[in-house]
C-alpha cells in the first residue's frame, strides 16, 4: 500500500535572484491499495509527473510524507531510494526508455543484472517472461528495430522482471496509436489480475484513465477522487 499525506511541492523558476516559487502540488493526501490499478488523470502541466517522481523517489518533496508498505520512503537518501526502487518498483515511461545498445532480451535482463543475479538464473527468468508477454520472436531485436507497441511491451517486461509489488506508468500509451494502446492496457489489466501487481497509471487521456479501478483527478495541484467510469 502507498499512502501519501499532505504532500506539497513547488518549483523555483526564472532567473537567479528573481526566482519565483511556483507551487505544483498542494497538500495531496491519498492512498493506493495493494493490487489495484489507480489512474491519475489531468491536463498537461497539472503536476501528475511531479507526483509520480516524488512517489518514486526521483525527487524529494518540499513537505509531506510518503510511505510504501509501511516504510517511510520520503526520508530516504539517494542510495537507499535507489535500492528500494530496484526491489519494489517497476517503471513504464511514455518514451519507453529502453537502452539503445541492448537487445530486447538484454533490456529486460538489466534490472536482474543490477540486482546481482547469476547469468543462468537471469536468462531463464527473462526467457519465461518474454514468452508470457509474447516477445520471444523479437527478443534479439534492438529497440530501434521494434515497433512502438513492441517497445512498450519490452519496457513493461523490464518493469515486471523483478516481480515488484508496484509498477508506475507515466503516460504508458502516450506514444502509441489507439489499437496498440488497447493492447498495452489489456496487458496491464491482465498482469494486475494474474500477478496482483499494483499499477499507478498517469495519463492525460480520460479513456485510458477509465481502465483503472480508481481514478484520481489532478487539477491545479489538487487531487480529487473522480470515481470509476467517469466520462467527459
Amino acid at each position: 500500500m502507498i499512502s501519501v499525506r499532505n504532500l506539497n511541492h513547488s518549483f523555483k523558476i526564472g532567473k537567479k535572484g528573481k526566482e519565483k516559487q511556483v507551487p505544483v502540488l498542494k497538500g495531496l493526501t491519498f492512498d493506493v491499495a495493494d493490487g489495484e490499478i489507480v489512474s491519475i488523470v489531468g491536463k498537461s502541466g497539472s503536476g501528475k509527473s511531479t507526483l509520480l517522481h516524488i512517489m518514486a523517489g526521483f525527487l524529494t518533496p518540499e513537505s509531506g510524507e510518503i510511505s510504501v508498505q509501511g516504510i517511510q520512503t520520503s526520508l530516504f537518501k539517494e542510495v537507499e531510494s535507489a535500492k528500494f526502487r530496484l526491489d519494489h518498483f517497476g517503471f513504464v515511461f511514455q518514451n519507453f526508455q529502453l537502452m539503445p545498445g541492448l537487445t530486447a532480451f538484454e533490456n529486460v535482463e538489466l534490472p536482474l543484472t543490477l540486482k546481482g543475479i547469476n547469468k543462468s538464473e537471469r536468462q531463464k527468468k527473462v526467457k519465461d517472461l518474454m514468452q508470457s508477454v509474447g516477445l520471444t520472436d523479437v527478443q534479439d531485436h534492438y529497440p530501434n528495430e521494434l515497433s512502438g507497441g513492441q517497445q512498450q511491451r519490452v519496457s513493461i517486461a523490464r518493469a515486471l522482471i523483478t516481480d515488484p509489488p508496484i509498477i508506475f506508468a507515466d503516460e504508458p500509451t502516450g506514444s502509441l496509436d489507439s489499437e496498440t494502446e488497447q493492447d498495452v492496457l489489456l496487458l496491464i489489466q491482465s498482469l494486475n489480475k494474474t500477478r496482483g501487481i499494483t499499477f499507478v497509471i498517469i495519463t492525460h487521456d480520460d479513456e485510458v484513465a477509465q481502465t483503472a479501478n480508481r481514478v484520481y483527478r489532478m487539477h491545479d495541484g489538487v487531487l480529487t477522487e473522480g470515481g470509476a467510469h467517469h466520462a467527459i
Binding site: F58, V79, A82, R85
Partner: peptide
C-alpha cells in the same frame, strides 16, 4: 541511459 539505470534502481 544513466538516468534510466538510476530510475530502475542502479546505485550511484
Amino acid at each position: 541511459e544513466i538516468g534510466v539505470m538510476k530510475a530502475i534502481g542502479a546505485d550511484p
